[in-house]
């Protein structure tokens, strides 16, 4: 009995100590970032162009480039992902070979390292399709990357639409296309939105896949075929390649983390609302 109690104490001690240590380290990381970066994040920092290789000035053009890359990524992955999710959840017979093959390959895609996406993007989009280092190439590379997340969440949304909806639509003689458009899509919209937001989070956080697809140029982009620098690349470049760039890198990191927190918080809030609605009789 006393041996059991000693083991109990030991395990409890190990769990508490490791959790406290880990929490302390993470608060240290977040705290030190906020402490040294927060003071520099001003309206001027967010809107002016970087000067002196980024040591001075702000991140205005970089924010714009990030949003453009994100826009291209979402504009391409959203229709493609939506179509794939509709097929997988509504039209692929359970256990059909095609459906299973697509699912399996999306699972593998979700695990592919981002640097490999970068290699692929540079070979296909920059060279084979002749886009060069550009916002387009970066956005398309990210679109490939976020597809698995987007498709999984959207499928979840369609799966949660009650099957009575489908039967009622069929009984009314609606075509499957109009049933999809008028009945199922509105019912599945929350899942689609969650997928969209999660995908945006993944795309915002990405660095390695953009290194040699969208490039380093820190000027304000004039077209989607211009090379442009994303926030994450800016942090990397300032801290590794520019001596004296650390303070602005830190401020940029604060901006990036704040954006990601907002995006992930939005996703969590939407999932929560959606789940609480689903508890009601369907």
């Amino acid at each position: 009995m006393s041996r059991g109690r000693a083991a109990d104490r030991l395990l409890a001690l190990a769990v508490w100590v490791s959790v406290l240590a880990v929490a302390a380290v993470f608060f240290w990381i977040l705290g030190s970032l906020l402490w040294s970066g927060m003071g520099r994040v001003t309206w001027a920092f967010l809107t002016t162009a970087p000067r002196d290789a980024g040591r001075a000035g702000g991140i205005g053009p970089i924010l714009v480039s990030t949003l453009l890359i994100l826009g291209v990524c979402m504009a391409v992955s959203l229709p493609l992902g939506l179509g794939a999710a509709v097929l997988l959840s509504e039209f692929a017979e359970a256990g059909s070979l095609f459906g299973r093959a697509v699912r399996r390959s999306l699972d593998v895609l979700a695990g592919v390292p981002s640097i490999v996406f970068g290699l692929f993007g540079t070979a296909l989009f920059c060279q084979a399709l002749g886009l060069g280092y550009s916002i387009f190439a970066g956005g398309l590379t990210l679109a490939c990357m976020v597809l698995p997340i987007l498709i999984r969440a959207t499928e979840e949304g369609f799966r949660s639409a009650p099957s009575e909806y489908r039967r009622a639509a069929a009984a009314l003689g609606m075509s499957r296309a109009s049933a999809l458009w008028h009945v199922l899509l509105p019912a599945a919209a929350p899942g689609l939105l969650v997928g969209l937001v999660l995908g945006m989070g993944r795309a915002l956080a990405e660095t390695a896949a953009l290194l040699f697809t969208s490039g380093y140029v820190d000027r304000m982009p004039e077209s989607l075929l211009d090379s442009a620098r994303a926030l994450s690349i800016h942090i990397y470049d300032l801290s590794m390649n520019v001596t004296g760039g650390d303070p602005n890198a830190c401020a940029t990191a604060v901006v990036l983390v704040a954006l990601l927190l907002a995006v992930n918080g939005l996703a969590a809030w939407m999932t929560g609302r959606w789940l609480s609605r689903r508890v009601l009789p369907a």
Binding site: G83, A84, V102, S105, A123
Partner: peptide, 27 residues
Amino acid sequence: KDRLLVWVLRACAGLSGAIVLLIAVFL
């Protein structure tokens, strides 16, 4: 119209599923 829709959806799913193969082929 339904048949067209199914083919469009199949194209989307096929393209999404083919990305992994494309990556392997290009590498």
